[in-house]
């Protein structure tokens, strides 16, 4: 590149400025659009957090208060003291962790079979996996309820876990299959020639290489299970068995909404997702298979 720059004659100033300034203008325009999108995305989150720190009367004032001038943690203590908060936390943690672990194990094994072995009906299976994701959730709620009711799984965490798995697994299998296909089979073969068993090659070579895929899948499963509302709301009746999202909805009553504690509760609920994401996101970033074969 540099040699090209040297050879090229220095452009005459007026000819060059116009296109360059137009280019800059266009760039600035796009930046503004991006900024607007960012504000639209971030503002609700900011408003949630800032409301959580405002005392009650400031929340509903006619002149919006952009920044909590007298921050208070009262809303948080109120929220935590609400009935069934700790039950909801426990339930959410159980549901989410079981869904994440189970979906990772099952999806990985399923993806392995789909990516590495040829069997009758494989293509059809892959298409069906993709197809079931197209069915809208709302259309499934009633049939699912009837099915689970017959199995006596309504109002039980296990029932909800199974339902979440059915939604997480197709995506997880599909994603992991892509990652597994990205690992050249020569790597495993090479490991086997180098002295690994098939299982050893799988653990030492394949598993580390699909790490990013496992991370991406686990984030998806975590968010799905933690944030899900409709299924939990429909299937879990008893307050002791509700998850955090259903518990949050209990702030909205017939007499109105208690905004302060609601926002505090929402902030608390959002925290684990953010923390989990920050913990694992560094491992997604780069394609680990780079350099395995000719690049």
């Amino acid at each position: 590149m540099s040699s090209v720059t040297q050879i090229a004659p220095t452009p005459v100033a007026p000819v060059v400025t116009r296109p360059r300034s137009r280019k800059r203008l266009r760039k600035a325009g796009w930046n503004l659009v991006a900024l607007a999108v960012l504000i639209v995305m971030v503002f609700p989150v900011y408003w949630m957090v800032s409301t959580a720190f405002k005392p009650g009367r400031k929340i509903l004032s006619y002149t919006p208060q952009w920044f909590p001038t007298h921050p208070t943690v009262g809303n948080f203590t109120d929220a935590v003291r609400q009935p069934f908060f700790w039950d909801a936390v426990r339930n959410s943690v159980i549901v989410t962790s079981v869904v994440v672990v189970l979906s990772l194990v099952l999806a990985f094994l399923a993806a392995l079979a789909l990516a590495k072995f040829r069997f009758y009906g494989r293509k059809a299976f892959i298409v069906v996996i993709l197809g079931v994701q197209m069915v809208p959730l709302a259309a499934l709620i009633i049939p699912l309820y009837i099915t689970l009711a017959r199995l006596k799984e309504v109002d039980k965490l296990s029932g909800v876990i199974v339902l979440y798995l059915t939604f997480v697994l197709p995506f997880a299998v599909w994603t992991l299959r892509g990652f597994l296909l990205g690992v050249p089979k020569e790597l495993e073969e090479s490991a086997m020639v180098d002295g690994c068993t098939r299982f050893g090659a799988f653990v030492r070579i394949l598993l580390p290489l699909v790490g990013p895929g496992l991370v991406a899948t686990s984030i998806f499963a975590f968010i799905q299970a933690w944030n899900e509302f409709i299924i939990a709301y429909v299937f879990l009746h008893t307050p002791e068995r509700q998850t955090l999202m259903v518990w949050l909805a209990s702030f909205t009553t017939l007499r109105g909404t208690d905004w302060g504690p609601l926002m505090a509760g929402a902030t608390l609920c959002a925290l684990p997702v953010v923390v989990f994401f920050l913990l694992v996101q560094r491992r997604i970033a780069f394609g680990l298979t780079a350099g395995a074969v000719k690049g």
Binding site: E189, S190, V193, G195, K294
Partner: peptide, 18 residues
Amino acid sequence: PKDRDIAMVFQTYALYPH
């Protein structure tokens, strides 16, 4: 394969990238 005590060089090299 592991017990045959042979070494193989693959067309794509198959180096372990991690």
